[in-house]
């Protein structure tokens, strides 16, 4: 099967890769662009570990084909601390011990960032429902919710 040429903007950089039409965006990020921060936990859009921003919208990259993203703008976890300075969410996740094994963490961070861009002051319930598509099996979510609340408060203060 012939591969297709794809040009996209990933974390601000223009990238090119060859994708088999059957490969997902997640496959392409991980295998062709060596961006392994996005994880595959299910491959069916049920766990959120592969969350990325595609043209400004939060999507599961396992449910997007690589070939669909020609011309698209993509942001992944690797683009969250571009100059090395952590995003407030990243700092608060560490401070609040909002991760144990850390496998779901990139997906949570990308999803939580999308939430705070849309809603800078979410309630606990809004955080929980927004993040319902991000499974975490270690933490019971308590510390994750607190980290998002704290990051939101800090970002509101800074704004």
């Amino acid at each position: 099967m012939s591969k297709m040429h794809v040009t996209a903007t990933v974390n601000g950089d223009e990238v090119e890769f060859l994708a088999d039409p059957r490969e997902t965006l997640l496959d392409c990020l991980r295998d062709h662009l060596d961006l392994t921060g996005s994880k595959e936990g299910c491959g069916t859009g049920d766990c959120g570990a592969c969350s990325v921003m595609l043209n400004g919208r939060l999507v599961p990259s396992c449910l997007v084909l690589g070939v669909e993203t020609d011309g698209a703008t993509i942001e992944t976890i690797e683009g969250m601390a571009p100059e090395g300075a952590l995003h407030p969410l990243q700092r608060k996740f560490i401070e609040h011990a909002a991760l144990q094994c850390g496998f779901c963490t990139p997906g949570f961070l990308v999803a939580a960032k999308a939430l705070l861009e849309k809603n800078p002051d979410p309630s606990e319930s809004e955080i929980r429902y927004w993040l319902a598509g991000n499974l975490c099996r270690c933490t019971g979510y308590d510390k994750i919710v607190r980290a998002v609340q704290d990051a939101a408060a800090e970002m509101r203060g800074a704004a």
Partner: peptide, 21 residues
């Protein structure tokens, strides 16, 4: 005490390498 975990930075930036990485 509750200092930052030593592997925290790797795990919030996507750098930490898991089985499939």
């Amino acid at each position: 005490t509750t200092p930052d975990r030593p592997d925290g930075l790797d795990k919030v930036t996507g750098r930490a390498r898991y089985g499939a990485d």
